[in-house]
Amino acid sequence: MTSPLYSASVPVFLHYLDRMDGMVRQTAGREHFLQARIAPDMFTAAQQVATATGFALRVAFPLAGREVPKLADHGMDRIGLGRLMVEARQGLQGLDPTEFAEAHTRLIRHRAGFAELDQTGADFLHLFGMPNFLFHASMAFAVLRQQGLPIGKADFDGLHDYPPGFRF
């Protein structure tokens, strides 16, 4: 039986990394969209993508009882972000589901901004890791959409289906 925390993390991260990769690919010819931000003190769309990508590894690897691998700096353009997401997906695909067997009770010490936290694997995933991953993925979507990239909910989750041109 696959660990519930494996099922709730690695496949979800892989799915949404694919979704973000699709949105970043759509910036071809409009790469300046990646340097936009919603507010002056927020990350750019590119940094939101990179941060979400890093969170996928920052969460999954400790749940598996492993050190978080350092991702290479591929740059913050469309091509570099694509390479970053490929590298992250390969790392996630290399995790064995059996490594997550005791993840729910594993104590994970980590930083949240300036706070030092100790959380069980279950709390780490559900209260910290997944919300942060989805926050940064959502912010990347919001910036790109605000810039005029023709994306919608179906692009974000890959599940919805709407008529051409329908957006909300």
Rank of each mutant, 00 (worst) to 15 (best):
M1S: 13
T2W: 04
P4Y: 05
A8Y: 12
P11T: 01
L14F: 06
Y16C: 06
Y16F: 05
Y16P: 05
R19G: 03
G22W: 05
T27F: 09
G29I: 10
G29Q: 01
F33N: 11
F33R: 08
F33E: 09
Q35I: 14
R37Q: 13
F43Y: 15
Q47N: 10
V49K: 03
A50G: 04
T53M: 02
G54M: 09
A56S: 08
L57E: 05
R58Q: 10
A60L: 08
F61S: 06
F61V: 06
P62D: 06
A64H: 03
R66S: 03
E67A: 12
E67C: 06
V68N: 01
K70C: 04
A72F: 09
D73I: 08
G80D: 02
L81K: 00
L81I: 09
G82Q: 13
G82V: 11
V86W: 07
A88S: 14
A88F: 05
G91I: 03
L92A: 01
E99F: 00
E102S: 14
R106Y: 07
R106S: 03
R109N: 15
A112H: 11
Q119I: 11
A122I: 07
A122V: 09
D123S: 14
L125A: 06
H126L: 14
H126A: 13
L127P: 06
L127K: 15
L127H: 15
F128Q: 04
F128R: 04
M130T: 09
F133W: 10
A137W: 11
S138V: 02
L144C: 08
R145H: 10
Q147V: 03
Q147P: 10
G148M: 05
K153V: 08
A154D: 15
D155C: 05
L159I: 12
P163T: 10
P164M: 11
G165K: 08
F166A: 15
F168G: 13
F168S: 14
F168K: 15
F168Q: 13
